[in-house]
């Protein structure tokens, strides 16, 4: 359209967009809205004629096809009525307009918050209020020391019981895991995305262009990671019970979240999407993104009306009401 090409329009722009009363869709300009209404809501399903209003369609149906129109097609459930005469933006009841604006505003701020969360940028004007993330620099020696500690712990764990250490994200150990090594297939029960594909969005990581150096990390509580929520407990692993208690100490709010972080780390490591080193940088910025992540998970909320290995008919056939006894019939 030329002019200013800002990526994200501001609230006023959004509020000024013409929108359709029947389906709440918004449009670039009024012309488009009107042609949308004619095509989607005021089109005669008998002859395809496009009328200007629902009333017009009703009269047309009556006169031409001798039928009566009971509701507007493709409309939202509570907007199917013929009682309101809508043409473009005209005729929309005031309370509906208010509702719509509310929704737009709400969506806008939500989207904005998500964007900030995703990019890690502070909202404009607020940059000062938040203390900049002062990173305590770790000297190479310190890093080496931590690495040595970590290795020792790892070795200790192995000796202790040959426990399955696969769940431990390779922290600073680039050779720790080969990509694609999937440890716990049961943990990701989304039937549609194999673990590798699940976070396919991560390779380019547009959100974190300036990867924090690994030294940013507030030193993690070692690698004895709390059992990730959603992962089955691994009783065979030494120290898992202890981990659980750690999780408890962190408080009910903290524990699952941390579990999620680790969950994600593992998934990424398994998918071999990012070199493990980078995953540290990810943790550093994690505090900015949990909101976004949880959103992502919520989007996956799926409730199936029927979910069974047996077909509904088989279930019904088992009910006494429909039962049939072949013996009785044969007799």
């Amino acid at each position: 359209m030329g002019g200013k090409k800002r990526k994200h329009p501001d609230v006023e722009e959004l509020l000024n967009r013409p929108w359709c009363y029947y389906c709440e869709r918004d449009f670039e300009d009024l012309k488009l809205l009107i042609s949308h209404q004619k095509a989607k809501h005021f089109k005669c399903d008998r002859c395809g004629r496009r009328l200007n209003t629902a009333g017009g369609l009703s009269v047309h149906m009556n006169q031409v096809h001798k039928e009566s129109l009971s509701s507007v097609e493709n409309a939202l459930p509570n907007r199917q009525g013929l009682d309101v005469e809508i043409f473009g933006m005209e005729g929309i009841p005031e309370d509906i307009v208010q509702q719509h604006n509310q929704r737009i505003i709400q969506n806008f701020y939500q989207a904005q918050a998500e964007r900030y969360a995703a990019t890690g940028n502070p909202p404009p004007g607020q940059s000062d209020k938040r203390p900049a993330k002062k990173i305590k620099a770790e000297t190479p020696d310190e890093i080496k020391k931590r690495l040595a500690e970590h290795r020792a712990r790892l070795a200790g764990q192995k000796n202790a019981g040959g426990g399955n250490a696969t769940h431990t994200p390779p922290q600073g150990l680039p050779d720790g895991h080969s990509p694609g090594q999937s440890a716990s297939p049961g943990a990701f029960n989304s039937p549609f995305h194999p673990p590798g594909a699940q976070y396919s969005g991560y390779p380019n990581q547009p959100q974190y262009p300036h990867a924090y150096p690994p030294s940013n990390l507030p030193s993690r509580p070692g690698s004895n990671v709390p059992v990730a929520s959603g992962l089955p407990p691994r009783p065979g692993q030494p120290g898992w019970a202890a981990n659980a208690s750690t999780a408890e100490e962190l408080g009910p709010g903290a524990a699952p979240q941390q579990g999620d972080d680790i969950d994600q780390l593992i998934r990424m490591a398994e998918a071999g999407i990012r070199p493990p080193k980078k995953s540290e940088a990810h943790t550093a910025t994690e505090e900015a993104s949990p909101e976004k992540k949880s959103k992502k998970e919520k989007d996956k909320n799926v409730q199936m009306i029927y979910e069974d290995e047996l077909s509904p008919e088989e279930r019904m056939a088992m009910m006494p009401r429909y039962a049939f006894a072949p013996e009785a019939a044969a007799a």
Binding site: I305, Y306, D308, E313
Partner: peptide
Amino acid sequence: GFETGMEDYSGEGRTKILLRVLGE
């Protein structure tokens, strides 16, 4: 519709057949 976990089911009184006359 029969849904997961339904213990007792009956279509009585709610069963209908609707015929749609398709436009050209």
